[in-house]
């Protein structure tokens, strides 16, 4: 991922013209994982690798692992639970986040 180049509190001289954001896809530097109160856990044994969790995730927080299976990108997952609800083989369960 390209480095984040922008200052969230720029001086008026630093601010790009018209406060245009010159770098694409910078919200990747804004982690939404801490919104979560439940965490999806994928049972790789049950998973049939259909990919529906990856399709339905509103946050693009399901990663395709090299072996073709799927796991959760906890940096962005907001814990909505759609993946668990929609998994045709119920391979995903929602586990409450607890302070460690």
């Amino acid at each position: 991922m390209e480095k984040f180049k922008l200052n969230p509190k720029p001086t008026w001289k630093e601010l790009p013209i018209a406060s245009m954001i010159p770098q694409p896809a910078t919200s990747r530097f804004y982690k939404t994982g801490d919104w979560r109160s439940f965490r999806p856990v994928v049972d790789k044994e049950k998973c049939t690798r259909c990919g529906l969790c990856w399709v339905y995730c509103p946050d693009g927080a399901i990663r395709i692992v090299e072996d073709g299976s799927y796991d959760v990108d906890l940096d962005y997952c907001k814990g909505c639970g759609i993946c668990a609800e929609e998994c045709p083989v119920k391979a995903i369960s929602m586990v409450e986040e607890v302070e460690e």
Binding site: A25, T26, S27, R28, F29, Y30, K31, T32, W35, R36, G51, L52, V55, Y56, C57, P58, D59, G60, A61, I64, D73, D75, Y76, K78, G79, C80, G81, I82
Partner: peptide, 25 residues
Amino acid sequence: SLKDLPKEDFFVQGHRACPGCGETI
């Protein structure tokens, strides 16, 4: 099939929609 979709996202992570937002899906 849905597997034909590009892996890459052009609307990316870190947006601030509510959890479960249908619009962002």
